[in-house]
């Protein structure tokens, strides 16, 4: 419990820093057709490595698709999340379930949403791929998986959620990781 309180104190400090950071870093996203974000194809195995490599942050691994209406409806919440909780505290890894042929369409969608960060498009997004992310995920979209350093998958859900739900979750996990995010 002592350790926990110490973490809380640290998290107050980090909270202040990253609020200031958010103001400074706050990206202005204007997507130009000629300036599309990079969307790379990724296999289940490559994605596992990418998540593993990224977990010195709180990571949100998010599956979506341009054809998925609930995904599109909640997408502004994700954009706001990235802008509110910038690296090194938080990282959003987007994985599109669009067909490989629709890669450009996915990139254009991301640009229109104001996201310039590189992201992925899942190759062979089948039972094996889905189970490699979580044995409990049915495959429904959108799907969100929160990873924290040292503990792996901390929370996940299927279906669209409000910005507040995302923000509360990210914030609680960042706070939990307070000591490690200095």
């Amino acid at each position: 419990m002592a350790g926990y309180i110490e973490n809380m104190r640290l998290s107050h400090a980090t909270g202040t820093i990253f609020c200031a950071g958010a103001l400074l870093i706050g990206r202005i996203g204007v997507g130009h057709a000629s300036d599309l974000p990079m969307v790379r194809t990724i296999t289940a195995q490559q994605l596992r490595s990418a998540v593993r490599e990224a977990t010195n942050h709180v990571v949100l691994l998010h599956f979506w698709a341009t054809w998925c209406r609930p995904c599109r409806e909640e997408f502004p919440a994700l954009v706001r999340l990235v802008k509110t909780y910038p690296t090194p505290f938080f990282r959003l890894i987007l994985v599109s379930a669009d067909a490989e042929e629709d890669l450009a369409e996915a990139a254009e969608y991301l640009a229109r949403q104001g996201l310039q960060e590189p992201s992925y498009l899942a190759l062979r997004l089948n039972d094996v791929f889905i189970k490699s992310v979580s044995s409990e995920w049915s495959g429904a979209l959108p799907a969100s998986f929160f990873f924290v350093p040292g503990r792996g998958l901390a929370k996940w859900w299927e279906g669209a959620h409000a910005y507040e739900t995302y923000a509360e979750t990210v914030e609680a996990l960042i706070r939990e990781q307070g000591g490690m995010l200095r």
Binding site: Y4, A154, E168, A172, R175
Partner: peptide, 16 residues
Amino acid sequence: SAMAATALLAGALKVT
């Protein structure tokens, strides 16, 4: 905050 964190972790499993 502690309660929120506990509730968050308890919610990690989803029953279908």
